[in-house]
């Protein structure tokens, strides 16, 4: 299996999908500058730079998607999506429904976020829950190059608008390369590690923190199952519920603010659907209700680290519901 980075995986997915379907186009803030290979192969009409104007980039993608193209737009950093909220939420997410199904919006929005570069809160803000909460949109956030490629291919082929969040901290870390042309279906989680005592559910870089925590827990005799959600909407409740029914314990981990984060929904659904299986309360680990600092130690402190996950899992395994 070849190794490549998540950045390369995105390029590979774009290349394969643009070869497969002439309706796929890519535009955004510097995409033609950074991805010369795409411009060389597909030309300057299908791969375009844009002004740094997220609203019109997203709006143009919405209009193009409704009229026969399949745009992929690069808006660089997730906080910049604030400028594109109307186009993504009010247009892409709603106009299919509001028109009685007359239009579909097959478009993908790429945005980077997360700790790793010390870029501060206006470049690093894990806003994925906003879009999970908005009807008509799908949301993914891969934790590996292979999943990034497979999920992006699925997102491009999907007839709905997909928010594709890229974890900055994982962008240039080499990983296992994906099998050529493999598509990772939206809405399907991966069991990153099997276990029987506690379920750790996560996405993005904290999946790796959960894996490290599971290693440490194994040394203590605690068997942790790690689930990588990959898709946040739709999310794979069946896989999570099946795991919790087996382990009876759940820790949900993400870098985004804990308050009303994706973990809150997962915890609520597990409480509603699998309460009888729970041997201990559900624990959510996430960032604080604070903007992310640029300073390295504070940026890292924002993110649930393996030690905190180990401590939470250990606590759950030592207590029983009376």
């Amino acid at each position: 299996m070849p190794t490549l980075t998540l950045y390369d995986a995105i390029g590979a997915a774009l290349t394969e999908e643009m070869r497969r379907d002439r309706h796929v186009i890519a535009f955004g803030e510097g995409i033609a500058t950074k991805r010369h290979d795409l411009v060389a192969e597909f030309g300057a009409l299908r791969v375009r730079n844009t002004p740094l104007a997220e609203g019109i980039i997203a709006g143009t993608a919405v209009g193009a998607a409704a009229s026969g193209l399949r745009p992929v737009v690069d808006l660089l950093f997730a906080p910049f999506l604030c400028y594109a909220m109307d186009e993504l939420v009010n247009s892409a997410g709603k106009l299919r429904y509001m028109s009685g199904g007359q239009f579909a919006f097959p478009l993908v929005t790429l945005a980077m976020t997360g700790a790793g570069w010390g870029v501060g809160a206006q470049h690093n803000h894990n806003v994925e829950a906003w879009f999970v909460h908005s009807p008509g949109l799908k949301v993914v956030m891969p934790s590996s190059p292979a999943d990034a490629k497979g999920l992006l291919k699925a997102a491009i082929r999907d007839d709905n608008p997909v928010l594709f969040f890229i974890d900055i901290g994982l962008l240039y870390q080499p990983g296992d390369g994906p099998v050529a042309d493999e598509v990772v279906p939206l809405g399907k989680a991966a069991i990153a590690r099997e276990g029987s005592d506690v379920t750790l559910v996560s996405y993005g870089k904290t999946v790796h923190h959960c894996r490290q925590a599971a290693e440490a827990l194994a040394a203590e005799g605690i068997s942790a199952e790690v689930i990588d959600l990959r898709s946040l909407k739709p999310w794979d409740a069946a896989t999570v519920l099946a795991s919790v029914e087996k382990t009876g314990r759940l820790v949900v981990v993400h870098e985004a603010n804990r308050l009303c984060g994706v973990g809150a929904e997962i915890a609520a659904v597990v409480a509603e659907e699998a309460f009888a299986c729970l041997k201990a309360p559900i624990v959510r680990l996430g960032g604080p209700d604070a903007p992310v600092a640029s300073s390295y130690p504070l940026e890292q402190a924002f993110v649930p680290q393996p030690e905190a996950i180990v401590a939470a899992a250990r606590r759950l395994c030592r207590r029983q519901i009376a």
Binding site: I56, G59, A66, L95, Q102
Partner: peptide, 28 residues
């Protein structure tokens, strides 16, 4: 919206029609 008549993507968000028009024209 009445797609069959070519009236597409009607929006009441003031300015949204302007944001989507370039994409429709790009497809054309």
């Amino acid at each position: 919206s009445v797609k069959e008549l070519g009236v597409v993507l009607t929006s009441t968000i003031v300015g949204a029609e302007l944001s989507m028009a370039p994409g429709v024209a790009l497809s054309q």
